[in-house]
Design a protein around this nucleic acid. Sequence first.
RNA 1: CGGGACGUAGCUCAGCCUGGUUAGAGCGCUGCGUUUGGGACGCAGAGGCCGACAGUUCGAAUCUGUCCGUCCCGACCA
Length: 553
Amino acid sequence: MINRASQLFLPTLRDDPADAEATSHKLLVRGGFVRQVSAGLWTFLPLGWRVHRKVERIIREEMDAIGSQEMFAPVLTPAELWEKTGRHGIPELFKLKDRSGRDFILPLSHEETFTFHAAELQSYKQLPQLWYHMQTKDRDEPRPSGGLIRVREFIMKDSYSFDIDEAGLDKSFELNREAYVRIFERCGVETFAVQAESGIMGGNESRDFLAPSGSGGNTLVTCENGDYAADLEIAHGVPRAPDFPPPLDAPEEIETPGVTTIEALAALLSVDEAATSKAMPHTKSDGTVVLALVRGDDRLEEAKLLAAVGADVRPSTEDEIRGAFGADPGSLGPVGFKGEVIADETLRDGQFVAGANRTDWHLKGVEQGRDFEARFVDLRVPKEGDRCPNCGGALQFQTAIEVGHIFKLGTKYSEPLGARVLDEDGNERPIVMGSYGIGPGRIMAAAVEQHHDENGIIWPRELAPYDAHVVALPGAEAIAEQAAEVLSAAGYDVLLDDRDARAGEKFADADLIGCPIRITAGKKSLEDGKVDFKDRATGEESRLDVADLGKEQ
RNA sequence: CGGGACGUAGCUCAGCCUGGUUAGAGCGCUGCGUUUGGGACGCAGAGGCCGACAGUUCGAAUCUGUCCGUCCCGACCA
């Protein structure tokens, strides 16, 4: 197949767009792959759509290979379905009405719709089932950003598995996990499958596929020895040991006028920040106050606290704090506090400085067990310098794009939507479900983030908009045509640059667009009746006979 | 939702602080000519409701207010 640049809508740009920050955003816009319509809303131009479809094709092949069945569900969805599962209140959900006032939503995933269809299943004999579709999703993102990285409307491949029990789900989950690994491999995108937060999907277990990149909404934590990978939100790190002062037999009160920060406290007492504790009171949805306690040099991970508390929490207001502690923020601590104390693991051993629950006073030598009781969990945000929880190796942090996310949902959707089947014993049981999402647009962005140089994109072979970019220079149009024909006959998709433009311009566009190989026909190669070959990734060049094209490259 | 920045030609930007007749540059675009292996050159052109509205003023791209839009940081986030 041959496309001619002279007839394509391929608006390449010389300058970076002013509103772009992420590399993939800049290059996809400059290369004429995508254009923004509004914040988080993008049109895929002809080349961008070709790449998108190549990603889709890979996904389809791998889904079909594990026996997943493709179908197609509507975007517009009656609100009742989402009311039944309790997801109607999600703030990101676009809501609308039809002319008679009936409520609809634009879904951000299709659990409800697919479970609605699964309700038609009747017997365990019909299970397992694995269904998928590729469909538009809408999310009223508070802050779209990074080009294709975070958008308000996008196409997602989402799959749903239906099993009779947990063991079946485990199998379906594993099947999909393996398929995902193959998909990312074929797309040339390096990913890490990590334990992740389940977010608004709910469910028991989930695994996130994170692609390291220059930009992105997630932080990937990995061990230098390769035995640990996690999303920062749930990652564990082992921090350095504190430099403790000599222990005390009992806590000692010390006046700390006007000292409300850890830095000031540590400086005033000449003590290691890591030997202090930080009290962060939170209020549960039922109004009770719990105290989250982390080491002075650490930050609290709200998501971990949320999981530990098992209820909605928010930072307490100053009034609530005074009510519960009898002191101002800045002088709070666990000693004497009547509510629950949830402390980070790092505070288990040693004596720490803590607030005295008396404004402008702190306590030295506070020790858990002796001076207060607490429940110990991991609450801190890992940071640079932490060691691996498995092997003690150095942890590394890098920004990443979440390109896929798979969940064990259990019966979270099948129960409320009445998707039940009869088991072998004739008992009605809710179907055990999993869901598996992947974003082709994000895969494109991640591929560009991972494969580019100062001149443009270097597409992985399976994603490139064309397999070969043939550049026709003046006087060599005929041989360029011939080269394109030969490549096309060999099964290559070819972009033939037949525009009336200067050589430099064509080369610059070819580098920017990033097809794996470039074939140039011009005066130089014409002398011996050949064409010039250039590998986009390596820069390697050679002169070839037209007849040999498409054979070895 | 909190903080910040920006909005002038298709793109990237100057002009605004210190208001003054016809609003500029580079790139891109059209025509003609010369050029032609890494974004050429000359000549001639087209292209703007200066984000919107309201105010101040004899006069507003420029000052004030409100709104809208876009981006960045945070909150949030399949």
